[in-house]
Design a protein around this nucleic acid. Structure first.
Length: 540
RNA sequence: GGGCCCGUAGCUCAGUGGUAGAGCAUCUGACUUUUAAUCAGAGGGUCACUGGUUCGAUCCCAGUCGGGCUCACCA
């Protein structure tokens, strides 16, 4: 789709971070005169997809879409899995760990899949998980496997180049290593022709003309191996640079943990004759108490947890916001993200100037095509509150509450709201309900409740909230709940209602009780009272 | 030590070269048969500090102080 000149001009000026990054790429392509642009994200073989994976692809895509506003050059995104890496240790979370022991140090694509199934190997399994993950969020990407790329020969030319520049590469690498490691370091890792393991051994000879390396094999005898066709792979740092050079990668972002090493990857890439890609360093996430989130610690939020309680758009907003800040990632940020997203989306159609539209996060979240916002302004914070008040796990009851106040709403016309209702109910089930503390009714309270149940029983199902409320007051007008009103008549004290909430709902406060009964149902309420009188609620 | 980021209301955080903002919390008032997904309002900030650029700086620049994260022969 052609980009309007006004939009393009705004993109070239915009201060939104994806545009800042895209401009760096634009400068680069103007200089090189290249005809296409390649974005890359990379994955370690061990980790299953996690929230950082989502963030990296989402953010890279934001830069990509921003770039497309500035330039007509075609772009691609490659998601590269380093599945040829040796299995250094057996992951904790696999069945029958012992069965994997014989495969230690072998490329992951040679390790049998501990999860069984149709996948050729553990690596293939992990790749499939990654792809399924990315597909779930409808990312536009091309998957790439290190094993495929190495074995098919796509890296061969660059590997030969690395042999030619072997000394230069060593000169970059050695100063970054400790003394001990320096003695044995090699940028080339042969795959043992006998055992299939990835070998970390020093080189005895490198021959660029022949395309071979020579090293001491596992039995001690010298082995000479052609580096091409997947017979060798490169060490981590040179591998980055080699890959960038071989694929002509233009942009790759990564977390701060790579920051110090990035200049080394870049240098290798340049030694291999290609300009290093543009980079963007993002911050890692912290948990509620400010500790770094790590998979092994299991702190912070997982992507599944986020998406249990909120939608993808809210997570994308979180990822858009200030990638360079170490942000806390825990439950409390979710409702806010959901509501802010809705606010930004509602504002978008009203924004007349391209400049403002491009500063709106929803432009980036939706790649320039945000959907129409829904009418109504029910916030997620409100819905979360409402589940507590309504004390329900039933969407229909939630909607009944909603419609009483805003009759124009319905699940059919407001599908997004309906989804949020579902999320709010999960929140209720997981956080509110377990925290409930039901009070056990004492004798006089039990008597009052029994009277209430009886009085309610005389009302027909479907009575109005007002009728029910009248009964509730009538029954409550007894000791110790009476109070004298301004006009001198006998009224019902707040304590009566507090008792009802504490005993029946496990809350300190609640909705207007007549409304609650009308929506919850008279028979249901009587059953609830019965359970309370038997002490069943307090036991739960 | 190198690098990155942060410092704005009691708390969590937005924000912009032109009179400081939200949510929560606090307080006040109204209303309902004293129950709140109600309504109206209030208080509270040297925008860390110092200098510079500018007609004007919370914002840009330099420095200072304070805090967080990251890197050390793992990819």
């Amino acid at each position: 789709m052609p980009v309007s000149p006004a939009l393009r001009a705004a993109a070239l000026e915009s201060k939104a971070w994806p545009f800042e990054e895209a401009r760096k790429i634009l400068k680069r392509v103007e200089k090189s005169g290249q005809k296409s642009v390649l974005f890359e994200t990379g994955y370690g073989p061990s980790g299953l997809p996690h929230i950082g994976t989502f963030g990296e692809v989402a953010r890279t895509t934001m830069v990509r879409r921003s770039f497309e506003l500035m330039s007509d050059l075609p772009t691609r995104l490659i998601c590269f899995s380093d599945d040829m890496d040796g299995m250094r240790k057996i992951p904790e979370n696999v069945p029958d760990r012992k069965a994997l022991e014989p495969y230690l140090q072998m490329p992951l694509t040679k390790v049998p899949n501990p999860f069984g199934g149709n996948y050729e190997s553990f690596g293939h399994h992990n790749n499939a998980m990654l792809r399924r993950f990315l597909d779930t969020y409808k990312f536009d990407y091309e998957f790439a496997s290190a094993t495929d790329y190495y074995t098919s020969g796509r890296f061969d030319d660059t590997l030969i180049k690395a042999l030619e520049k072997y000394d230069d590469i060593m000169a970059v690498m050695l100063p970054t290593l400790g003394e001990e490691r320096q003695a044995t370091y090699s940028p080339f890792l042969p795959i043992s022709p006998t055992s299939g393991r990835v070998l970390y051994v020093p080189m005895k000879d490198v021959n660029a003309k022949q395309g071979t390396i020579t090293f001491a094999g596992e039995d001690g005898a010298d082995v000479t191996l052609d580096v091409r066709g997947g017979r060798t792979k490169l060490q981590w740092k040179p591998d980055f640079g080699m890959r960038w050079a071989a694929l002509d990668v233009d942009f790759e972002m990564f977390g701060k943990d790579h920051q110090t090493n990035a200049p080394i990857y870049d240098r290798i890439c340049e030694i291999l004759g290609k300009p290093a890609p543009e980079h963007y360093v993002y911050e890692l996430f912290l948990d509620e108490s400010g500790q770094k989130i790590s998979k092994s610690k299991g702190n912070g939020l997982t992507i599944d947890e986020w998406l249990t309680y909120a939608d993808t758009e809210s997570l994308a907003l979180y990822m858009y916001n200030r990638p360079r800040e170490a942000k806390k990632l825990y439950f409390d940020v979710i409702p806010r993200a959901v509501d802010e997203y809705a606010q930004f989306l509602a504002a978008y159609p009203k924004q007349a100037e391209a400049k403002d539209k491009l500063m709106n996060p929803v432009w980036h979240i939706h790649g320039g095509h945000p959907p129409q916002p829904e009418s109504g302004n029910v916030t997620f914070a409100l819905l979360l509150n409402l589940t507590t008040v309504a004390n329900t796990e039933d969407k229909a009851v939630m909607w009944a509450f909603l419609k009483r106040y805003m009759p124009e709403l319905s699940p059919e016309t407001h599908p997004r709201l309906d989804k949020l209702v579902g999320f709010a109910i999960r929140y209720f089930q997981d956080f509110v309900k377990p925290a409930k503390k039901y009070k056990l009714a004492d004798d006089s309270e039990a008597k009052a409740l029994a009277d209430l149940a009886e009085a309610l029983g005389k009302l027909p199902e479907g009575s109005s909230p007002e009728e029910i409320q009248k009964i509730v007051y009538d029954v409550g007008r007894r000791e110790p709940y009476t109070t004298t009103q301004k006009d001198g008549t006998v009224g019902v004290a707040q304590g009566w209602f507090n008792m009802l909430y504490q005993v029946l709902l496990g809350e300190e406060r609640g909705p207007r009780f007549g409304s609650f009964v009308a929506l919850y149902g008279i028979a249901n309420t009587r059953a609830l009272i019965e359970k309370a009188l038997k002490g069943q609620l307090a036991q739960e």
